Amino acid sequence: MALSRADYHAILHALAPPGRALPRDPETLWQRLLEARAGAFARLDGRADTLLEEADPRTAVDLLPDWERVTGLPDPCVTGEQTASERRDAVVRVLTGTGGASRSYFEGLAADLGYDVTVEDYTAHTVGSDVAEPLRGIDWRWAWTVRGPEQSVRYFDVDGTVDEALATWGNERLECVISRLKPAHTLVLFAYGEQ
């Protein structure tokens, strides 16, 4: 917890040597100078306190651009403005993400981006396959589908700022991020409204 201006004034006052050159009367020039210096120390101490919050990307405000620079953000898939909360979430996602190629990884990635999707993968039809299964060739084993709602809406977050939109629509960001992070040998398909 940061010390207050009064705390610093008392400390400076106690450190001053006794004597007539440095009077103790609150209306003197010396005491007003101590009061001004105490204010500067209190501001500096307060900023040092907030630096602890800035060291955590989940609570960063002033150092958020530095966190983004370190993590290689903004994501090339992001078009337009992002909310402060979305920017912080992206930094945390890059720092804590381990990557993956499973259904749960891509469903979790979409959830982190604000989308509710399911992932469906396919198998090729073989001699031992059930006759009720669709006839798919061997290339279908490399295809998978991301299924989501027809309209995806991301709403304003309480951590946002006053100049942010109350809601945004669209799936372009989801498609770009998943297409960029999918395994290179696979083909991803997107289907909306069929969830």
Rank of each mutant, 00 (worst) to 15 (best):
G114Q: 12
A132L: 03
L181Q: 04
A167T: 09
N171K: 13
E175A: 07
D130K: 11
L181V: 11
E120R: 13
A143G: 04
A167Q: 12
Y122F: 09
E164F: 15
T126H: 09
P183Q: 14
D116C: 10
F156N: 01
V153H: 13
Q195T: 00
E194W: 01
L113M: 13
V158H: 09
T161H: 06
T118R: 03
G114K: 11
G193R: 08
D121V: 00
W144T: 01
L166S: 07
G160K: 00
V153K: 14
W142R: 08
R154K: 07
Y115C: 05
R154M: 10
N171P: 14
T168I: 14
V146I: 02
G128N: 00
D130S: 10
A165W: 15
A165K: 14
G148D: 07
V131Q: 14
V131N: 09
D163T: 10
V177A: 05
E150K: 06
R180D: 00
S129K: 10
V131I: 15
E172A: 15
T145A: 05
A111H: 11
L135T: 07
A110P: 04
Y115N: 12
T168V: 13
G148E: 10
L181H: 12
D121G: 02
L135N: 08
D163N: 03
A184M: 00
A143S: 03
Y155T: 13
P149N: 15
L187N: 04
L113H: 11
A132I: 06
E164K: 07
K182T: 01
V131Y: 07
V131P: 03
W144M: 04
V131M: 11
W169G: 15
